[in-house]
Design a protein around this nucleic acid. Structure first.
Lengths: 142, 142
DNA sequence: TAATTATATATTGATTGAATATATAGCAAA
DNA sequence: TTTGCTATATATTCAATCAATATATAATTA
């Protein structure tokens, strides 16, 4: 009964943040991230798939294997991550696809939802993984 | 698999817009709104309850009965409606309630979700029912 | 008192979210 | 070359929630 961000995109963001925090440490195991973030490995395995497909992560199998960020943390925004894992940046279907509703032409609320979606994702676009790493450091030194 | 506004808050907004469009027409039947908005009466009956409790609508039973906006359309924002029907203005539980997650103190993403929620609802707060009525008029005269 | 309208409660069916389980595939070092 | 390590792929489960309907009851006016 209330609009909520899925654990998928929240865990996904924490997954990416964790990797950003260990950027340059070589391939990282999902099991380590799972421990640090207190999330199940199996679930992270699911979440990481689209992140790999989208080119944000590269992986290596076998011993000494693991996952690495494919881009520097400065070049990945939270919008990238959330937009990917939530499958789109619109809070209502009719924002993107004008064919789902026959009222599209008359409906004044459609534009409303579009603006709300944009306000949200515009904000998320201004924040990179590097920003989050900084913020995390600041929080820990307190 | 994607964050979406519920039909509850979308229909609720259309319900309120419809009432704003017939402001000063006396008590309005839900059945008329249902027809105009192409939504089931039964469902609207559910949605209207919290709107009444919150004081946005007053109702009269019996013949000549119906529902009336308790405030002028200028004084009701979309944030009021959506915030009410979605039960809160935060996209993640931990935004409001700091006890739901033990990581609250360390978690840099929490602030993130808070900002995203605010960005969205701040935008919705700038739009009143009167604005939507105007927009609807403009769309129809095209 | 009869017709009309709103209110209250319960129930349904389908969908989705969140997570787990079980296998398979590929790589590196011994 | 084989053993162990790690990632990948697919399927399945369980519970929660969304969206909607059904069936009553209560109040008001003509």
């Amino acid at each position: 009964m209330s609009i909520k961000l899925s654990t998928r995109s929240r865990y996904g963001t924490r997954l990416m943040l964790d990797m950003a925090q260990h950027y340059n440490d070589g391939p990282i195991h999902l099991s380590d991230i799972a421990k640090r973030q207190d999330v199940s490995v199996k679930y992270l395995e699911q979440i990481i798939i689209p992140l790999k497909k989208a080119g944000y992560i590269e992986s290596l199998r076998g011993p000494k294997g693991g996952h690495i960020l494919a881009k520097p943390p400065e070049e990945i925004t939270v919008k990238d991550i959330v937009g990917l894992l939530e499958e789109g940046t619109s809070l209502v279907e009719c924002c993107d696809d004008t064919t789902v509703c026959k009222r599209t032409d008359i409906c004044p609320t459609r534009i409303l939802w579009k603006e709300a979606s944009e306000a949200m994702f515009d904000r998320l676009q201004t924040i990179t993984l590097a920003d989050l790493v900084e913020k995390a450091k600041a929080m820990q030194s307190k």
